[in-house]
Nucleic acid binder design. Structure first.
Lengths: 214, 214
DNA sequence: GCGTAACCTTACGTACGAGTAGGTATGCTC
DNA sequence: GAGCATACCTACTCGTACGTAAGGTTACGC
């Protein structure tokens, strides 16, 4: 008696994606520690040893999730913020893509990101990803500055870029916690804070202690 | 034979503080889950049942840490940002106090910010604390706006405030990871981004889609 | 049609860490 | 200096979940 098995065998590449899908869902629901490999396997419709065979330990699995989702996000942003455009146009498109992505993956990306920050083991991975974005933003600012004949120390630039990226991350977090919020509007608000502040810097205005009330 | 005991008995209040000190250190080093009650007890120079007797379960212990560090931070900020000063002066003093606190209590900050965010169980506590800060910042902006006869929707204000708070948190995170960085300088940089951007808003300049390159 | 390799499973070892039972010493009060 | 409350300890239970050993099943090459 040959019963057609409910779930056919599938090639490795397909299963891996199913596992990653399940892992992202479970990790984002229960957190890194709260998630169990058993549940991930179950949600992926597969047994636990397969997960270990394909994606390795829990830690490696989480890194794989982080990597896939992070790459997707980077691609979404890179695809939108094409070079050879004015800096503000690029920034705007980049922000819109970023918030669009986060808005579309509320359960996935934002939560995964939050988890990664808490664990020392993933700090490096995270730092590298953020560094790439900060570099891009700093590059935009630098480009715009040079176009106006100004120049700013690299560290200075980096810290400002870091602040802008941080503000975006926080708004992304806020977005993830407010399901009915509009990503587009959020991006506009971020653009207001970022660009108006940056524009001031571009025009040589800086604030320093002792000039309060001016 | 009466050997003087190496560690004398201490009143409850003192031991509780020692336990909290140890807990903050351990939590910030290994994360909420990575930390073990045994290690916390050991670092506090006491045995585990005492921790349970005084501060309760692991979760309650963490909340106690969160509460103490959070209160300290709030007090540091509130003590600096006195009312009845111009908005920018208040913002500057608040920022300086904030970054000063983080610089001096890097462990406490790590617990508050990185660990508490990851765990759903502590999200509420965190959200409330942040909400209080956002409210204060939004109040500053609102005050400054009214002084100039302008008015902005409350939601708008809140999101901008949220972005500024987020940027500060990120820079604080950066500060925590760079032991040789100067809190004062970091505060100045944050002030630049925040206040120059906000000043633009105050003067009625806003950015909106479609005005790129202007 | 048959072997081989890849796919997939059940069932387990094991370690770690939260929380507790029950007992000992110390200092304070009268 | 007896009694009592409080500080404190050693040594244990027990659940949970990571990671694995060893064996069954399907597809595919030849």
């Amino acid at each position: 008696m040959v019963t057609t098995p409910a779930f056919r065998r599938l090639p490795r590449a397909v299963r891996e994606q199913q596992m990653l899908d399940a892992a992202v869902r479970v990790f984002s629901r229960h957190g890194y520690h709260g998630a169990s490999m058993d549940e991930i396997a179950e949600k992926a419709g597969i047994s636990k040893p397969m997960v270990y065979a394909y994606l390795g330990t829990k830690e490696e699995l989480f890194v794989a999730c982080l990597h896939r989702e992070g790459t997707r996000m980077m691609e979404a942003i890179a695809g939108a913020a094409v070079p050879d455009l004015p800096a503000d146009e690029r920034l705007w498109r980049g922000l819109r893509a970023f918030f669009g992505f986060v808005g579309a993956h509320r359960d996935g990306w934002a939560v995964l990101y939050r988890q990664a920050r808490a664990e020392r083991a993933f700090a490096d991975e995270l730092t590298m990803m953020r560094a790439r974005i900060v570099e891009v933003v700093a590059g935009m600012l630098d480009h715009a500055l040079r176009a106006e004949g100004r120049e700013v120390a690299e560290t200075e630039l980096e810290v400002v870029a870091y602040a802008l990226v941080g503000a975006s991350e926080s708004l992304a977090d806020w977005l993830a916690d407010h399901p009915d919020a509009d990503p587009e509007k959020t991006a506009t608000r971020m653009m207001n804070v970022a660009w108006l502040g940056a524009a001031q810097l571009l025009h040589g205005h800086t604030w320093h202690p002792g000039m309060e009330g001016m």
